[in-house]
């Protein structure tokens, strides 16, 4: 290369290299999808009060059986979908119902792998109902929307979020209030 044009070639090469970088708009050179709508559509209504329905018969054995199923069922392929209690529909593929996931956080009589995020609910009737510390309405409201009596609760919202309907909340309430026996451990 001719000596006199060498610096010129060098400068123009560098310029070109720099320009090729800046020719691309760096504001569009990466992915940043918008999620604001996803968040907005995913919000649930603010804490809502519910009254236990009149037809919620807490000693109805079929209700208790359904409530028991929902309490212990996790979203898992291990759940026994064939032996559903009477009055319960089999969940469709990928459907969340009827999984209450309660046992993920709470221990209770005969729980398998009960969690400790929430208080244990064993002996609930003797400890809380018979002593009048709690009543059925409290438990129903707690399961339906726990935020009403505890602003910053860690518990799931089950009725305001429309995961369950009123009758199902009644089923689960009936199960929590039932007098249960611990199976002797093998």
């Amino acid at each position: 290369m001719n000596k006199s044009i060498r610096p010129f070639a060098f400068i123009s090469f560098t310029l070109l290299a720099v320009m090729s970088v800046y020719a691309v708009d760096m504001n569009k050179a990466y992915d940043m999808p918008d999620a604001s709508k996803i968040v907005k559509d995913d919000l649930i209504p603010s804490p809502t009060k519910f009254i236990i329905p009149k037809d919620c018969k807490l000693d109805d054995l079929e209700r208790i059986a359904r409530g028991k199923y929902m309490f212990h069922a996790l979203n898992s392929k291990n759940d026994n979908k064939e032996n559903l209690p009477k009055g319960m529909k089999a969940p469709k593929e990928d459907e969340v119902k009827p999984y209450g996931n309660c046992v993920a956080c709470h221990n209770i009589e005969n729980a398998i792998g009960g969690g400790t995020v929430g208080p244990p609910l064993s002996n609930y009737k003797a400890n809380f109902i018979d002593t009048k510390v709690r009543d059925a309405q409290f438990v129903y409201q707690k399961i339906a929307d726990p935020r009403v009596d505890m602003h910053n609760t860690s518990m799931t919202v089950n009725l305001t979020s429309k995961l369950f309907n009123e009758s199902e909340i009644c089923d689960i309430t009936a199960y929590v209030l039932e007098l249960k026996k611990e199976k002797p451990t093998k």
Binding site: I44, A104, G115, T116, D145, R147, N158, S161
Partner: peptide
């Protein structure tokens, strides 16, 4: 948010407790 009405904090404010 979501169909269980949970936030990250619902669980992550209680380290050391057992969930599932």
């Amino acid at each position: 948010r979501g169909y269980r009405g949970l936030s990250c904090n619902s669980c992550h404010s209680l380290p050391g407790t057992i969930l599932r």
